[in-house]
Amino acid sequence: MARTSSKTNSKTHKNETILRQPAEVKYRQELDYLASIDKGAKPFSWKLSPHMVRTFLLGSTPSQKLDCSIEPKWYGDSAIAERAIVTLASDRGLLLIGDPGTGKSWLAELLAAAICDNSTHVVQGTAGTTEDQIKYSWNVAMVISAGQSQESLIPSPIMTAMQNGTIGRFEELTRCTSDVQDALISILSEKYISIPELKSDNVVFAQPGFNTIATANSRDRGVNDLSSALKRRFNFVHMPVITNKKQEKEIILFRTQELMKRHGFEVDIPPTLLDVLIQTFADLREASNSATSDDQRLESALSTAEQIGVLEDAILHSRYFGNTSLEPAILARSLVGTLVRRLPEDVSVINQFWHATVERRSEEEKGEWKDFLQGGKEAMGLIR
């Protein structure tokens, strides 16, 4: 790996105590190494060339002949990653849209970390998000004592990104009301924010390298649809639900092992149990697709992220209250406990699924499926 300065090492050591490190801290050594060997052209003030950003996301290949292997961090179609990177080098913003749990926020964070070494300029969209959170607000105490000035102005994460020429992120854009969404239009098109309260120095212009990554939940369409004017300022990149079992397994293993490292231990996940989890979710999705009403579907999105949550819950339960090794019955209890959210609808849906699909697989494939079947029945018995 490329050497890092003592200042960087000190910063990295300090951030080891953070519960969840930003991508630019977590993958500091990889980013520094890629920057040290990067000979490609860089748009604006980018830290890495588009080719190296792609390598950071998808991992290195033998043909690149790198001294240090770069592990993949995002598992998906390379065309999606390339379109996202190219969009951020253009004049348009990037909108990642897809079902919950398809990795939109993770991809946005990795892109921002690789491009500008800072993924923390984030606005979280909610029904209560205001225009001030997108543009700027004021330090009330300073305004009362000395009036409105540059010193009393509090820039939003998006304004800070504009001033620094970095990437601003906007999570769950469609959760915000239409008037709040429209505050982005002038930022994306004109690349500046006016501050009419100030008499001078009252315009903040975006520096080269500024762009915006927004995410939107495709299940939220109709909540607060984007206006046509705002849609024109974005390139849409649709994030598909992962259905390839090999790819899904890689994602689950990667993310679960990372989560376990937070707890200070490593875990070996039995391949047969992981297959049971992945197959169960595949069967649940098939049942959901064939259902004729919402009452016959689980409220959960049945995404890869849900599987990671189920597996993490089961591993921790086994670690603290079991025999340390992951067991089929505990995995089943975690799955039922995670997916049942509505009472009694979800209980009815998963009960029917368990006594039909899971019971059939238990009879046909036996092995881990028998204990998995029994663990699920016991879990449902507790929540009826």
Results as ranks from 00 to 15, higher is better:
261 K>Y: 01
321 F>C: 08
257 Q>R: 13
288 S>M: 06
332 A>R: 03
331 L>N: 05
260 M>Y: 01
359 E>N: 11
292 T>Y: 10
281 F>V: 13
296 Q>N: 10
309 G>Y: 02
334 S>W: 04
313 D>T: 14
330 I>G: 01
320 Y>V: 09
256 T>L: 06
360 R>D: 08
290 S>N: 14
288 S>I: 01
291 A>N: 10
278 I>D: 00
349 V>K: 00
296 Q>A: 14
325 S>G: 09
249 K>Y: 04
249 K>T: 11
300 S>Q: 08
330 I>N: 02
347 V>N: 01
362 S>A: 15
316 L>E: 08
344 P>G: 10
316 L>I: 15
359 E>I: 01
300 S>L: 02
279 Q>W: 07
341 R>K: 14
365 E>G: 00
335 L>W: 02
268 D>I: 13
294 D>G: 03
290 S>G: 02
286 E>R: 15
256 T>N: 02
314 A>T: 06
269 I>N: 02
257 Q>I: 07
323 N>T: 13
258 E>W: 05
364 E>C: 04
349 V>A: 02
337 G>Q: 08
350 I>E: 02
331 L>Q: 06
278 I>H: 00
348 S>N: 14
307 Q>N: 07
261 K>I: 00
303 S>G: 10
304 T>D: 05
297 R>E: 10
359 E>S: 10
357 T>H: 04
319 R>S: 13
313 D>C: 12
316 L>H: 07
254 F>D: 10
325 S>W: 06
347 V>M: 06
357 T>G: 03
275 D>K: 08
343 L>D: 11
277 L>M: 11
283 D>T: 05
294 D>Q: 15
349 V>I: 09
338 T>C: 05
272 T>E: 15
262 R>D: 07
317 H>F: 06
295 D>V: 12
324 T>L: 12
248 E>M: 13
311 L>T: 04
281 F>H: 08
334 S>Y: 05
245 K>C: 03
266 E>W: 00
340 V>K: 00
268 D>E: 14
334 S>G: 15
301 A>R: 02
325 S>R: 12
326 L>R: 01
281 F>R: 01
254 F>W: 07
348 S>A: 15
326 L>V: 09
285 R>I: 08
360 R>I: 00
355 H>G: 04
314 A>P: 07
325 S>V: 12
274 L>K: 01
260 M>H: 03
290 S>Y: 09
314 A>M: 09
345 E>Q: 14
350 I>W: 02
309 G>Q: 13
258 E>H: 12
251 I>E: 00
274 L>V: 03
355 H>R: 10
289 N>K: 15
298 L>H: 06
344 P>N: 11
